Computed example of a mutant assay.
Amino acid sequence: MGEAVMTTRRQADGAIVVDVRGSLDAATVDALRQSLLGTLQRERPAVLVVDLTFVVFMDSLGIGALVSGYNAAREVGCRFVLRNPSEFVHRQLRVTGLSEMFGLPPSTSPQTFTP
């Protein structure tokens, strides 16, 4: 099982960014879910950005944590944005049929994707 590091910061425009690095699997998804849900409850941002630039692996549990964050953001009126998913992560979301829900284009490109 892998390791993941999550850091949270506020951008100048008020959006909160959760930077995720490493692997999202059984050993790490609880920390991601807690980070996303806790940030939404405490901060109530207008926009929550999850930066996936340095995510090297993600299984179905990682996808589930992102879906939980997306649903929780919708409940509080927050826009949930995935930023820079790697080709591997993007492929996982396409295969599961969730890329459209997250507003991802048919293939990855170095930009921010918004639902």
Score class of each variant (00 low, 15 high):
residue 80 F to C: 01
residue 30 D to A: 12
residue 18 V to W: 04
residue 17 V to Q: 01
residue 59 D to R: 00
residue 82 L to N: 04
residue 55 V to D: 02
residue 22 G to W: 10
residue 40 L to C: 07
residue 71 N to Y: 01
residue 80 F to E: 02
residue 24 L to W: 12
residue 99 S to H: 14
residue 59 D to P: 05
residue 68 S to I: 00
residue 103 G to H: 01
residue 49 V to H: 07
residue 22 G to P: 08
residue 62 G to P: 00
residue 92 Q to E: 15
residue 110 P to V: 08
residue 54 F to L: 14
residue 59 D to N: 15
residue 95 V to L: 14
residue 113 F to Y: 15
residue 74 R to A: 11
residue 13 D to F: 10
residue 5 V to T: 15
residue 42 R to A: 14
residue 1 M to F: 12
residue 46 A to E: 14
residue 17 V to G: 00
residue 20 V to P: 04
residue 13 D to C: 07
residue 28 T to L: 10
residue 51 D to H: 05
residue 58 M to C: 14
residue 8 T to W: 03
residue 57 F to C: 02
residue 39 T to R: 05
residue 89 V to Y: 10
residue 6 M to K: 02
residue 67 V to H: 02
residue 102 F to W: 11
residue 111 Q to Y: 03
residue 86 S to M: 09
residue 75 E to F: 02
residue 78 C to D: 07
residue 86 S to Y: 07
residue 47 V to E: 11
residue 51 D to E: 14
residue 4 A to W: 06
residue 92 Q to S: 07
residue 78 C to K: 02
residue 32 L to D: 02
residue 48 L to N: 00
residue 38 G to E: 13
residue 113 F to G: 04
residue 95 V to N: 06
residue 102 F to V: 00
residue 91 R to D: 13
residue 94 R to C: 13
residue 26 A to V: 13
residue 109 S to I: 03
residue 85 P to S: 07
residue 105 P to V: 02
residue 1 M to E: 01
residue 50 V to P: 05
residue 102 F to E: 11
residue 53 T to P: 00
residue 78 C to A: 06
residue 62 G to F: 02
residue 113 F to M: 07
residue 33 R to L: 08
residue 12 A to C: 01
residue 45 P to D: 04
residue 26 A to M: 11
residue 46 A to Y: 04
residue 33 R to T: 14
residue 23 S to L: 00
residue 97 G to Q: 05
residue 90 H to D: 09
residue 72 A to N: 06
residue 86 S to V: 07
residue 54 F to A: 13
